[in-house]
Design a protein around this nucleic acid. Structure first.
Lengths: 174, 174, 174, 174
DNA sequence: TATGAATGAGACTTCATTCAT
DNA sequence: CATGAATGAAGTCTCATTCAT
């Protein structure tokens, strides 16, 4: 794999573990086994590196969401949304990626609403079809809950994401 | 007000707005209108300053939680928990304090579970009294949801905390 | 003498000898026997250091020019202007200061016309009193010549400023 | 035109505008539309590039001076010398070349006396023929003046080289 | 001839912290 | 209690240059 990729991988891991500000470019270079200067040659500056990582991530997220957005069965839309959380745990790298997303949200105070919009619309439609009185609100409610679950999952070691997802699943099956 | 307090206030605001790592002691000193050295005289080092802020905060949180913990009417326990969120917005300083709590959680990856334990126990008891099948799980569920609501409130400008709380309230009244 | 002054002195010497761009802040710190950080504490950045030196210089120049500007005898105005050149050589530090002025002019392409204006006006008046047909032009001519003499004096080792000044003096006595 | 020439042209412009130290090889490569490595292939290093530019320039200067040096009519020698200044303005590229000459003089503190010697000798002879008492001094005087005029022309936007040359011409016609 | 990838050295600057007063 | 002077270490980034292709 190319050195540029090594940098991206190391940076993702370090940003996710220690935060953007707290991770120095020299630490990234060290961990990637490249010279510090190479980071700047490839990404212009530290922010450029972050942006490259986030852009890569947006693509991944789009793919993940696409599966939900194009689902027509409302029950399946909800089910697939619930499964999203469990996908966080698929691999160390995927988990790092999502952890970074949340960490960055807090560090830079950008919520990135537009990224979630298609998902919210899909959920709103699903709840509408299922006869919910306030489908838009319920969609927001579920997504907010999932933000909470992510918070717990990444920050509270004792949190059991699977069990909690199961409980939520039951609620929506009533 | 004392200079020590000026420092605490400025640091709270800056840590909450820009994060701990990204806030330099010189910025704090500047914003507080004191010399940088005074920070170190009062708090030993930058970490000491953070700890002082967090300790101050724990007290405030304890007070806030006490009201809920000693409540015996289960419906009121839930209602008061829901009201907690709206208290975030009471004043700029209170909001900053809570924002900092969340920011620090993500920056230092300490969830501080023990702080929330009394609240979780109180909620568990309340749900038990109300005949919920899995009261402990429901308590965790509600607190997780509130973490999500906090995330949205602090990071997503368009989020309407009052409306969402209202929706949640209705759910628990069914 | 204060460390701040040591920095100014070292910087003046180095900027004058090697140019602004080619002189690193670490070289200045070394030569002044202080930490590099102190430069930034006192002058904000490398440009601030240059500005401080130039501002100090403007004062010196103003004093030097004042003597000429308030002279009423036209012959003496010219004589004192001619003497200006010889004052470049008064001491190593004064010479460094004037060398820096010229070096900076070329490096940053700022001529600083307004600094010379009072002198040009004084000379124009002197030549008018002496009956020159184009006094303003003659003033400009003399000052331009002195720029040339400075160029030679600072850059051409074999240039004998005293002899050349003597020759010029004769010209104006005709 | 060859890429080697593109580099020379861009470097001349940039060195003349921003100085040698302040111009990075990457800026030159960028502005010339070539890779940075090509500069080093053609000129070994940054200094080699400067030397190539200066050598190219020496040739141009030699040609310019030759016309004066081989002139036998003393009045024409003076007239042609005066015209030299106006030739600075012939084209942007010629002006850049002369600006660079002066800039480099100041940046590297090399006056390059030997380049001017033939001109000085020619002028000395001319003034001798015209009966000046100190012909060598007068030659030096005129050349110094022209250095002053160059300084003004390149650094002082409001300087009117043509008018000043005209004034000088009158002086020598008296 | 021409380039893209790569780098060691060093540039400017900021940081948290100490100390004398 | 409060500050201004001072600094070592580290931070981000640029520089001239090399090398494989």
């Amino acid at each position: 794999m190319s050195k540029k990729n090594d940098i991206l991988k190391s940076a993702l891991k370090l940003f996710a573990d220690e935060g953007f500000s707290a991770t120095s470019t020299s630490k990234i270079a060290n961990s990637a086994g490249v010279s510090e200067a190479l980071i700047f040659r490839h990404f212009k500056n530290k922010n450029g590196l972050l942006e490259a990582i986030l852009k890569e991530g947006e693509e991944k997220a789009r793919l993940l969401f696409a599966d939900i957005v194009f689902e027509t069965n409302p029950l399946k839309v909800i089910e697939k949304t619930l499964e999203l959380g469990e996908k966080f745990m698929a691999s160390k790298e995927v988990a790092d990626f999502w952890k970074l997303q949340y960490k960055i949200k807090w560090e830079l105070e950008q919520y990135g609403e537009q990224k979630m919009e298609p998902l919210e619309i899909a959920l709103t439609n699903a709840f509408k079809k299922l006869g919910y009185e306030e489908p838009k609100r319920e969609a927001c409610y579920l997504l907010t809950l999932m933000d909470g679950m992510a918070t717990r999952f990444f920050l509270q070691k004792s949190y059991d994401l699977k069990l909690e997802t199961e409980y939520l699943r039951k609620k929506y099956k009533q």
